[in-house]
Amino acid sequence: MPQMTDERVRARLTREEDLSLLHEVSMKTAGVSHLEMCIQCGTCGGSCPSAMDMEHTPRMLFAMLRAGMRDEVLRSNTQWICVSCYHCVVRCPQEVHIADVMYTLKGMAIKAKLYQDSTAPDFSQTFVDMVETYGRSFEFGLASRHYLKHFPLRLPGMAPMGLGMIAKGRMGIKPKKIRRMDQLKAILERASQLELTS
């Protein structure tokens, strides 16, 4: 496996001032993003199963990143519509880690408060809260909290499904908690501090 140090990533991207946004996104992305290698072929936009609901295809976002259009990129709904199917990732001829870049853009949009619709960030946050409380995901709590807030009108229609899940024993109404919650909390706290300094 080729390893890429931060220095090499930085050296590649800081040569040009215009690439500073690209560089920022790249540094915040797990693995090596290869964003600077995009040739605008559209494999990603062509592959995307949810492209029909996206304001910009991923390819357009990458061009906008190059152009330094920070707010427009972070405000786009594209990263929130990404379903993480990784079709674009394996097909990309330049090996751009597209799905991971989408995760990075979500994080950046949340921090800059530039998302248009709070459904997705809220869902993620609710999920994170559950995990940070119990160490496990808690579907019932997550679904009921989330639906009450964002899809109250959908609830009556959903009720039979939810009830069905409960009746069939597929949804516990009590959360499970891991034994060493203290340890997990300590790890996540330290990780959050490291996130701020990186």
Partner: peptide, 27 residues
């Protein structure tokens, strides 16, 4: 102008039935 993402025979509507569908971003 676009690198073809896939060629599929999974039709989504009548227009596509029995055809090969080329899915691509027209960049």
């Amino acid at each position: 102008r676009g690198k073809v993402a896939e060629v599929t025979n999974a039709a989504r509507d009548e227009r596509e039935k029995g055809k090969l569908i080329i899915q691509v971003e027209d960049t």
